[in-house]
Nucleic acid binder design. Structure first.
Lengths: 184, 184
DNA sequence: GATCTATTTCGATACGAATCTAATTAGATG
DNA sequence: CATCTAATTAGATTCGTATCGAAATAGATC
């Protein structure tokens, strides 16, 4: 559906046809002259545009008047370009956690801040915890290093990771705990 | 430019990739798994999306993190789906007259009303006058018929066409005057 | 009903792009 | 520096579709 719409738009000839139609109605002959293609070719393109609901057809005698369907155009553009809509194409819906993490990341992939609200804190920490491999020991120096790649305040984040039972520490070494033990 | 953008969007695999990226950043491997394609194929698609400015790339070690460029997405969507922008693709810009006529037409190609304002009246009448062939006589019955295809009030329009020197009448027959004689 | 006109449908060809495997590059690790 | 990993680039194949000429359709005209 949306794919059909985009495919219909994504061709130079059809864009130019729509360009002509944006000004006013045209017959097939006029369009063929306008874009320097033969009638059958134009007819073929118009059929695609019509399938996609991008143009309207009005028949008068045996002349077919094609026009731009502005409504469909704006309706569909909104559908395509909303982030959540886009996510639907992957079958994957965006969950709240992902959205929170995304909003906390700079373009360089660093955390903008330590989240003040509790609701946001957990997904951020979970994301950070996943930077560690499970079933492996980390000396404190390496823990700090990994955290600092995401935020300068290694102390706060390290403490919180442990507080949420995402990391554990014993005699100077750290390891990642299984997700089932993390505090919700 | 805009064409490149649309072509980048108009493919199922790439839409699904964008869908995944809409949720959060992904590496190439993750994406390949997510859409069930091989890495090189995904890499190829990502290159296109990057060319079109739809995704961002952040390199960390030898892992490449791709993300959605939401800004570009909305900026471009606005560019594509404005009617006047679309017209630019045809090389033809929309002039004021065309716009006026378009707003006066129903989906069936009939005139919604007789334009009250003088500014609008002329382009509407000019459009109507062009329904007549030049160099040919029309009996009044046929003039009425042609006008009625566009609006029920044949009297008003017929009178105005003559008033604007677009049609002329002599002893019961009408003919279209050359455009150079039309009153501006 | 025969003819003329505008459009569409059909069938063939050609061009572009999607996908894969294999080879190469760039960065990290020991 | 040798090796390992993630990604990209190159090359080959396949698939989709843009385009055209020819034939068929639908409406108008005589």
């Amino acid at each position: 559906m949306v794919l059909q719409f985009l495919k219909a738009l994504a061709h130079e000839s059809r864009l130019r046809l729509l360009g002509l139609l944006a000004a006013r109605e045209h017959s097939v002959q006029e369009l063929a002259t306008g874009v320097a293609l033969k009638e059958p070719t134009v007819s073929h393109h118009l059929a695609m545009l019509r399938e996609a609901g991008l143009v309207t057809l009005r028949q008068d005698g045996n002349t077919h008047w094609y026009g731009l369907n502005q409504k469909a155009l704006s309706r569909l553009s909104r559908a395509v370009f909303a982030r959540d809509q886009l996510a639907a194409f992957a079958g994957a819906e965006i969950n709240e956690e992902d959205r929170i993490v995304r909003n906390y990341l700079t373009p360089e992939g660093r955390l903008k801040a330590f989240p003040a609200t509790l609701k946001k804190r957990r997904p951020i920490l979970a994301w950070l915890a996943k930077q560690f491999e499970e079933g492996r020991d980390y000396p404190e120096s390496e823990v700090n290093e990994l955290i600092e790649r995401r935020h300068h305040d290694r102390e706060t984040f390290r403490r919180e990771l442990i507080g949420h039972r995402m990391l554990a520490r014993k005699s100077g070494v750290y390891w990642r705990l299984p997700e089932s033990e993390w505090i919700r």
